[in-house]
Design a protein around this nucleic acid. Structure first.
Lengths: 189, 189
DNA sequence: TGAAAACGTTGCCCTGCGTCAACGTTTCTC
DNA sequence: GAGAAACGTTGACGCAGGGCAACGTTTTCA
């Protein structure tokens, strides 16, 4: 149940086994179905999630029904609607599992408590933020001013499994191109 | 010299005057000219900067000479080439002051030292990361799939001073549109 | 297991925006 | 303060990619 989480933490920070055990006690398992929502737009996000199996997707819906995928967390990754989680304001986004998933969930208060009391956990949180920021920046200037073919090549280089794991439709909404164009572009590779 | 920095910190975290004084001792003033570089692509970033006056711009240059502006820090803001600063790898970006500027600079080792020894400073750093991440996310899905007019409206709503402070050319490279299109778009507002 | 819904692919048409160029204006630089 | 370089604006043109629709295939769930 907690192996993957333990591996995640201990590979990133040196931590006593007792601290690790204590951390586990705050994470409770959650099973979800395909397309089940963890958070709806307008709700305030109260949990941080760790993916044992499956995949979390975070997305927004614009007027007209078009959706934009913002972030995917796969096995061994953390994910939440961070702006809402941090600032405790209504989320501007949806969070769902796009396939049957096994998650570990921690409440916000517990998460912040751990970040303050267990230095290794605080360090992990800082690292998540740093990496998230770096990834977001890479994405901005990896996409900015590039055409469809270059975007697809970019995502293949930086997230090799990505196109294999998610549907064309979602991949397209992540890349900011239409499903038709993604389909045509892949045919050219 | 340190008023603005002091205001920045004490408005975000409760901190003892003595700690604040200690923090100041690590920041040294730097004066720069218009278009002076603080970091070149390929160098490893060793400093974090605070802007007392002027403006820092972070940008990349692609093949063909086109540049993409990634981030601007104005008066009262922090800025650095974070991926390089964090991971101590050669930067993929340039950092420059786009106008005559007065900066406060802290060395990386000192910055991390403060973040670890003064809780309020560690908290500030975490907040910078959180806000940076949130901003980057907003930018991704504020731009994704929007046309030029919507992007311009977005930036006016979220960073009202932005278009007034930076040149058309830089604003365009930030928005991911051509200077011509930005010019035409502004005429429609 | 079978009907219905969702998805991937492809063709056609159309439009938003990038490129290029010209021209007036601002701003460096010495 | 004068010449040069950079910038903002606008027009003409071309093309990448979006919208829409059609069709075959896969998935879903009673």
């Amino acid at each position: 149940m907690y192996e993957l989480l333990g591996k995640y933490i201990s590979s990133r920070a040196s931590i006593a086994a007792s601290d690790l055990e204590q951390i586990y006690t705050y994470f409770s398992p959650v099973s979800t179905k395909r397309n089940e929502h963890l958070l709806l737009s307008g709700e305030v996000c109260q949990h941080y999630y760790f993916v044992n199996k499956g995949c979390i997707r975070i997305y927004t819906i614009h007027e007209g029904g078009r959706d934009t995928s913002r972030f995917f967390a796969f096995e061994g990754g953390f994910g939440t609607a961070l702006p809402s989680f941090i600032e405790q304001v209504p989320a501007a986004e949806y969070m769902q599992t796009i396939e049957r998933s096994e998650l570990l969930r921690i409440r916000r208060a517990d998460f912040l408590h751990l970040a303050e009391t267990i230095p290794a956990f605080g360090f992990i949180y800082r690292q998540i933020l740093e990496q998230g920021f770096i990834m977001a920046q890479k994405r901005i200037y990896g996409f900015q001013g590039f055409d469809a073919l270059e975007k697809v090549k970019w995502v293949i280089r930086h997230q090799p499994d990505f196109l294999l794991r998610v549907s064309n439709k979602m991949a397209a909404s992540y890349l900011g191109i239409s499903p038709s164009t993604l389909s045509r572009t892949k045919a050219k590779l």
